[in-house]
Nucleic acid binder design. Sequence first.
DNA 1: GAGCACTGC
Length: 738
Amino acid sequence: MAIISMAELPILQFEDKIVETVDKNPVVVVIGETGSGKSTQLSQILHRRGYTKSGCIAVTQPRRVAAVTVSRRVSEELNVPLGDEVGYAIRFEDRTSEKTIIKYLTDGVLLRESLSNPELSQYSVIILDEAHERSLNTDVLLGLMKRLIKLRASNLKVLVTSATLDGEKVSRFFSDCPILNVPGKLFPVEIHHSSEKPKSYIDACLNKALDIHTQEPEGDVLIFMTGQDDIEKLVSRLEERIQRLEEGSCMDAVIYPLHGSLPPELQIRVFSPPPPSCRRFIVSTNIAETSLTVDGVVYVIDPGFVKQRQYNPSTGMYSLDVVQISKYGFQISILDASLSWSSWSISPATYHKHIRVQANQRAGRAGRTRPGKCYRLYSSVAYKDDLLDATIPEIQRSSLAGSILYLKSLDLSDINILKFDFLDPPSFEALEDALKQLYLIDAIDDEGSITSLGRTMAELPLEPSLSRTLLEANECGCLSQALTVAAMLSAETTLLISQSKSADKKRKHTPSNLPDGSGLGDHIQLLQIFELWHETDYNTGWCKENNLQVRGMKFVKDVRKQLCQIIQKIAKGPMDVKTSKRRRENQDYRSLRKALCSGYGNQLAERMLRHNGYKTLGFKSQLVQVHPSSVLRTDEEGMFPNYVIYHELIATTRPYMRNVCAVEMPWVRPVFAKLQNLNVSKLSGGANQSREEVQPETADVQKDDGGNATPAQPAEDRDSKILAARERYLARRGQANK
DNA sequence: GAGCACTGC
């Protein structure tokens, strides 16, 4: 059953043009706005015109929910059972069969597939949908496609589709391939700019929201905030102010916060229709950016900021910064003000229902004028001059160790990975950092070639440090524990139910019955938590009692199962979860911690002599602290262990190590030896000729621990200084201990 | 003694 009659979708008027262009060109860029039908129709058009005779059509999506719902929609339109001719493949779930000719998948799954079949020979057409989101995976795929169309010139077509992507840039990337523009069906949006920058964004949002409520006709309001904190502040102040409005002076209002750490049942509230003659205010993070439509949103308030995570390759440190949004990376269309959902938060059935509702409303609205309004809390000059055209793509904001290892494992003999053709290449420094990390955990040798260990690591859907830990654990006889830790860390941020600040004040110290990692650190605590849950036979009530997100814990269980399946063929010991309380209490987890030490060779820190600050090793040395949320214990003299490994460095108010684990000096020694032998230019296999050119960019002024600016030093030089300093330090510590 | 936007294999 088609909801919108097919003839209404703009893209279908271009069918002949599309097919003609695809026939003549290996790559075509399709720019289609929301509502153009590109996600559901392109695959069907090419299927109708015979492109499935020689292979399948793959359509990638950046999100799981999208892959599921779009494929469901297409199977309905073609009137076939889902999983037969039309199917989808996402992590943990493969609904395809031998019959499948149109396959929707997440871009990560396609990358995994190309690991075992680098030419992706089963596909005659590959459509990279929603490429404007520029996910790390999409960018890697874009580069791979460029190579693949040369190798398979006779039998592969690639389409890159996007809502707002700079089509010309992608076209240039693919040797000036043609660009097709498909109009969408959007309602007109009136854009209002503020004349000046507000002093307080919360105040400005509050006043604008009240203006709308008291002066504008009915229609819901969507307000974008950067994070949970601001959302909660604005919600409570808005509630207070609306209550104070004179009764009967305007319609009723209901206010919903919306952000990722909200429990699912509170998230889906925005889908239930409001009571009659009641205006909804939805105060949201940029979770409300893509894919889904909330009915009834007519007004959008946009302060122009978003929180973004970025990685600094010279320090290995992440930071979460509030940055200005870009012109096209954050485009909201009213009545299409889209809400995307994490895969767990809403069932596909619910998602689908709302697509229908929205489609019906649109159909019913056709020809009716109900212009939406967008209030930007910045001036039109600021929009024009200050905002970047597009958000900095993820590939330029992330650690690349995983992606580089993946590319190396593909054995593309014709391609030098350091010169891999990315749409937006990462900095040379970021590539060097990735190589260094990989070398320190034995994934590549001193000439930059992938090792057999590295090959196995690439097969695991984990970051390299955790893959390495698993393999080491397999040798040390603690594979079972390491599997649990790796799985727990894959979901770590979604495990704890976040408490709002107001709730926090009421009960300052929430008593927790959760284990404490025996004082050895957070990895051990995560292990113990999962083992306890296992003992309850995966009881959901237990999760709730202990303030753990049920869906997060279930995700851990799924990841663990998947890891077991992959590692099974090389496993040297049992993989099932151990369940002995006595064992847990008496353990020192030495094997596991030693395995972690190998895996985190590049995420190692050494404590300062007289206080509990640490210095990071391997990177340009940073003074960092153990995150206050850590369960790592100090000794009887109040000191932390001499050495720890950390899962992540994150700069918030100060630079912190999040998730740390105590390790011991003898385990650390091999890492020092490797640091000593490190020769980054050798790792990059001669690619350092270009180093001269890159120099001005990488030679940023850096700060030493005292905050004084010093010129950047060559990496080799820095590392030998670290080692020399360490020798002196160890000598001092040795004397102190005597 | 802090606070973390959103995805994904």
